[in-house]
Nucleic acid binder design. Structure first.
Lengths: 206, 206, 206, 206
DNA sequence: AATGAATGAGAATTCATTCAT
DNA sequence: TATGAATGAATTCTCATTCAT
């Protein structure tokens, strides 16, 4: 949009934007590592390679940085939606793909997610952002399973519990690998597959 | 209240212990609510109803409080062990009981667990404490399932993935309810049952 | 009242009070010299000979220091009242004494008054404190003159304007000598006398 | 507005002067309202509608703005001189007119005067500016009264005290109305008249 | 054993000012 | 000439911790 049409001199808008990004990147990393309080403006400025005060020229105050970061955590729904909409031939493929989509969505949002988890208690508005993700993932999957059942591809069953199990598994894995960083090697593709299989059989899907 | 003057060293030990407990309780609550940094010594002392300095007579420094709290997080193994050792008649009952045991073990350790989750990044020694629990729970369940299979009560299957799903589900639920405090009402007993059923069928257990 | 009855050990209450006083004195002096903003907590602490943080143990924040100082500026009414109530034999003596009372009341409140004058614009609550003094002095004098007239000791006249002139003269002198510190030597006793005489004759008082 | 590009150095001088004036006006207003420190360069630039840095192209530093403002406070002598030189028929008219002249001279210089009053302590060079006005007004009036006495229009008297009273009254009124903004309504013309009358009678002028 | 006073290190933030463009 | 970005110094205030009682 505002791609500084002419760029007569390289400085200006582009450079400003870059400084801004550097500050955000530094804050993202530090807050995920040390929490909101632990990521002091001094440390952020040092990591970003700018003067501490420069932060305050770009963001009204420290909290604004957090807000800006949280806004990065855009809606996950479209991705999940597409995963469910695609025709996969069989239900297992659908589940595997859904698992992938959800898991990598979490991984993509890794830092900000961790910030959310840590700051959930102190910044109440973070709650929604945070809880919405698993909640939505469960709801959407449950809904899909119900549809499949109506189409006759699945017998009846407790789809709510099933969806919950499925989503929980990948959130748990995400946490283990990217937050607590458990050292056990996890083979994600295999996990997607196995989990999908167990779930599918668990709800009588074959 | 102020009768300490007269009690010349009598019961001093008990009273001292009580003060200590009050400080720990206050710190436990505040750190779970606001994180390590957010739980200032001032706030802790106020909540504990003692003078701020008194904290430092009982604990070398603030970090020692954290360490002490973390040490509260006793081994979960004995409880799980007992759940698995009991004769339940059928596998489903076993699973339901295992789920209960694990879930309520988490709930019991709620505050300290949350502190661990929040401070995982800052206090590396917390890592082990934190990761050990789910890891152990998965391992033990996997082992048990394998035994059941050897006993002919279960067909072959990916018991690792299965155990992982099972444990993940309850950790996820624990987080939703006790940390992020998602407002959806969760009916735990029903969840234990449904999850156990799905898992059991998923691994061909009937 | 709370004169630390026993004073078993000299520290404690008495010493704390002294620190408090030292901080107030330093703030009083600096704020009168440099205004509220100019009197930084650092400078105050240095002049008071305490650590900067100690200030915040005694006063919630910097503004509280100002408020506390302003509260020093006690009611001027009783003094003026007594001056008017005393029997002086003649009106001139009354006026001279009233002048003295008002003038030295201002001088006594010198620093705080100057702080008020400087900060009137920024701290609206200071307005009242500040304006009340001359206003009250004029009102009370006007009232007295009216009484004297009713008693037949004075002819009729514009007592409001007269009282205003009288009070203004001494406020002006106070400012010249204690604030702007005009170097011209002012002989106050003589000024009181001359001003009283002129006023008295001006309202036909002899 | 943004047509400066085209105007190649034409009228630059005039425009520059205007910017300068806008900065001075903003500073004058803000410093009178909030004092020197309270009038930050940011606020000045915003009120003046210019970029903050532009201020420093016009004035070496913030202090120079103050100095420039103080220089605005032109001599009051010519106005007072003329008031005294005019033939008024009677002394009372002379006094009334002198009062008017002095009072409105103060009002005209209102902002800068207030700045002087507030900053007197911090900026010693302001002292003279500030004290000169009342001092001069008293001196000139005293001198005139003495002349009138020599001309036989007045009996002998303490003209110094008289002039002081007169001048003080109007300075006091000026302060009440334009600085501390006491809410009592003041009817200036009536005040001039009454004060002149009282003074005149007070020095035996009729 | 417990407490009130005191403090050094460091937090976020504001300010006047300089540097490039 | 004017401006947007950047900054060093300083400000108010908080925190964990020590000292003296």
């Amino acid at each position: 949009m505002d791609q500084s049409n002419h760029r007569i001199h390289q400085g200006g808008k582009a450079e400003e934007q870059e400084t801004r990004e550097r500050i955000l990147a530094a804050a993202r990393q530090l807050m995920a590592q040390k929490g909101y309080k632990g990521a002091t403006t001094r440390k952020i400025s040092e990591l970003a390679g700018v003067n501490e005060v420069t932060i305050f020229r770009h963001f009204k105050n420290k909290e604004r940085i957090l807000v800006e970061l949280l806004e990065e955590m855009t809606e996950i729904r479209p991705a999940l939606d597409q995963a469910l909409r695609t025709e996969w031939g069989d239900v297992k493929s659908l589940l595997v793909h859904y698992a992938q989509t959800y898991y990598y969505a979490l991984v993509e949002r890794k830092e900000v997610l961790i910030i959310c988890l840590i700051e959930a208690a102190n910044h109440p508005e973070v709650f929604n952002l945070l809880s919405r993700m698993p909640h939505l993932a469960v709801d959407m999957l449950e809904q899909k399973l119900r549809e499949l059942q109506e189409e006759g591809q699945l017998p009846e069953g407790d789809f709510c519990a099933a969806a919950n199990m499925f989503v929980a598994t990948f959130f748990h894995t995400f946490m283990a690998k990217h937050w607590v960083k458990v050292d056990c090697e996890i083979d994600e593709p295999k996990l997607f597959e196995s989990t999908a299989e167990i779930l599918l059989r668990g709800i009588g899907g074959r």
